[in-house]
Each structure stands twice: as C-alpha cells, then as structure tokens.
Design a protein around this nucleic acid. Structure first.
Lengths: 208, 208
DNA sequence: GTTTAAATTAAACACTTGTTTAATTTTGTA
DNA sequence: TACAAAATTAAACAAGTGTTTAATTTAAAC
C-alpha cells in the first residue's frame, strides 16, 4: 500500500481523523467529512477507494509517522527507575498527541480480528513490548525490580488507566472540579502521569 | 421511568444487549435485533419508543439489577488489605458478568455529555467511590496505607487495566498463547486479577 | 494552441436506516 | 358470545448511507 499522500489527501485524512475521534467511525458520514474538508463527496472514493480504505490510509499515515522513540530510550544511560518514568511519560505524550487515531484503533477496531487492519498496530505493540522487556530485565539483573512480574500486563495498566480516564472526561472533570478542558489536559500531564508512574514503580519494586 | 419490564421486553433487551456488545450500538440495526429476537421490527418502537430509549431501558434494567455488594464489603470485619483484594475481585466479577452493558456504557457513550443517559451510571460510580474511600481511609488511619494517594485515580487503574486487556482480546490471546476463549477468561480471573490486586496494594503500601 | 490526463462536480443509484401507519390477530373480560 | 384492549403484522415512509456515473473544469505536456 502506498504511504505517500498528496496535500489534498492529507487534508482529508486530518479532518477525517478529527471527526472519527469526535463522533466515532460509524457515526461519521462521508458527506460530513466532505463538507468539513470543503470537497465533493466523490473525492473520498476517488482518492481512497472507500470509507474503510480511508481509515486504513489514516492508520498507515499515523503509525508510519511515529518514530521509535521508545527503542532509543532503552539504550540511554539511565537507571531502570528513571527509564520507567521516562517511558510512561513518552507513552502518555505520544498518545495525547495522536489521541484521535489511538481512540479509533483501540476501541473501534479492537474486537475485530481483521488482520489487515490490525497488522500495523500489532507490529507497533510488539516493538513497544520488546523495549519494555529490555528495561525491566535490566532492572531485575541489578536487583532493583522484583522478578515475578508479568511484563505483558504492564502496558494494559499504563494505557488502560490513561484511556479510561480520558475517555470518561465528563465524569472526571466534574468529580475533580476541573472547569476547563485545559485544566483537564493539565491534570493528565501532572497528577495522572505521576499516579501511573508511582503505580508502576510500586508494582516493580514493592516486596510483599 | 418504568423499571418493570414484561417477558417480551426482557427478551428483546437481552438480545439487544448481546448484539450491542458484539457489534456496537450504531452497527446494530433494529431489524437485526428483531430478526434475532424473532419479532416484528415495529415491536421495538411499540415497546420502547425508539432505539435510543431501548438502550436507556437496557441500562436501567442492568444497573438496577446490580446489588450494592461493595457497600456491604466496607462494613465487613476484614483488614484493609483484604478488603482491597476483595473489592477488586468484586469489581472484576461484576463487570465480567455484565460485560455487554459495561462495554456500551464506558465506550459508546463515555464521551457524550447527555445527562439523562449517564445519570444512572454516575450515581453508580459515586457510590463505588464512596465505598473505596471508606476502605482506604480506614487503612490510612491504621497506618498501613500511605496518605498521598489520589483516591479517584484508583478505579481508573483497576477498570482501565481490565478493560484494556479484555477489549484487546485477539492481541493478548495471541501474545499469551491462550488458545481458547475459556483460557482467556481463566487468565483474567487468575493472573490478571492477581496483577491488578498486586498493583493496587503496592501503590497503597509502597514507601518511596 | 492543441491534446491528454487529472481533478472536480452534480446527479443518480441502490441500499439501509429508524419510525409510523393502518389493518389484522390475539387476548382478556364482562 | 360479544366487546374492547393489547399485541402483532406487512407495508410504506422519509431520510440518510456509501458509491458510481458521466459531464465538466483544470492542469500539464508536447
């Protein structure tokens, strides 16, 4: 599949991303996208073939966009605890910036088994898991981390906490008295981030 | 709103629940529901008024169904750590049994602010938070738990981890070499449950 | 400047959606 | 049995969906 898109295509992709993230894939019609992008309805089919293929193109566009920052991290000269902290920070920021596409990927298509669509996503997940393993093994060898950790369950805890929080935005805004969207975003980057870091470190270090 | 439904209505509700959970609210048409329930399409409008109101009825049916087991727990004679363990077990089992409706509640309507629909859900969340606070405060007074915990962030960690894991079933089945659906369910009730309990306890107890 | 390909358009297409209608059957009651 | 209310039905409705068509405009190449 082609990975290079022209300006018009990217314009469509970006607007589709916003609308999909706001209202979901099904709830967003091609006509809505066309109107928002100020193009003719037929252009989506013309450029991408179909609505489904537009989504595939969007996934491709966004995931090929993502550099492998996490891989680099595991080779930096930091102690394991600092690496975990940085890893979580990376995770959160990366997803925050690509919130739209992540939301679609994780919740709109997570239960479907259509291999073609998920292949790219799975590759991404596998790479991230490998990097996480490297970091944790290092900490275990140095005697800092406990050894009975199920590593594949770490990322669900990080991502799950983050997603659950940000997907129930109205509830937590009210609960935590966060009046504006900025206050909410700020809470994520400070309190929630710290909470997740604290949680994972506690899990890795704590001796029962 | 009425909370008592006749047999026919419940039959429709149960089938709708399954279909909504499997394919999402939007992707499930009234005709699909009618066919599965072996009734006429008009019956849904006749009994519930509309598709939206059918969902509202389903939420009502399921949440009024849920007894307040968690509230009872906080008054039992157990030490705080045991209570946390039991609380998490309760959470997981309760959601596992009502997976369909929880999936719809948390992901299909989590970003919408429509008060009417979420009112019941919010009440449920508030009650649960209160119970959790009671348990944690008890542990803090006894000097077992640390005092700088942000309690509202505990449930996102529990629920988020669980949801993220079970919503990415295909990926984790492959990753953890769980061949059958039963093996997957079993993994949740053993390994994942323990992982979450371990995580929360570590967070509450660990001194940095 | 003409030709050829790409881009863009409005309109139509075939289909699905949720909902309503009006007629018919079933059920319960007096 | 007769009547009235409830349940059920097939059909129609209006609106929206993704996609395709065929005609037109724009751009590029020669």
């Amino acid at each position: 599949m082609k990975t290079d898109f022209n300006e018009k295509q990217i314009q469509i992709l970006l607007i589709a991303e916003t609308l999909f993230a706001e209202n979901g894939f099904e709830r967003t019609s091609i006509r809505t996208i066309a109107k928002a992008a100020e193009i003719n309805v037929a252009m989506v089919s013309y450029y991408f073939g179909s609505k489904e293929k537009l989504l595939e193109a969007l996934i491709l566009y966004r995931t090929s966009d993502l550099k492998i920052q996490i891989e680099n991290l595991s080779h930096e000269e930091l102690d394991p605890i600092e690496k975990i902290d940085k890893l979580i920070e990376l995770y959160i920021n990366r997803i925050r910036c690509n919130k739209g596409i992540y939301r679609i990927l994780h919740f709109e298509f997570s239960s479907e088994e259509e291999e073609d669509k998920l292949k790219i996503l799975n590759q991404l997940r596998d790479r991230n898991l490998k990097s996480l393993e490297t970091i944790i093994h290092e900490g275990q060898q140095k005697g800092i981390f406990r050894k009975d950790i199920i590593i594949p369950l770490i990322s669900p805890t990080i991502l799950g906490t983050f997603f659950h929080f940000s997907m129930n935005k109205p509830y937590f805004k009210k609960l935590l008295a966060l009046e504006t969207d900025e206050a909410f975003e700020n809470y994520i980057q400070t309190k929630l981030k710290t909470h997740i870091q604290q949680t994972i470190k506690a899990l890795l270090i704590y001796e029962s």
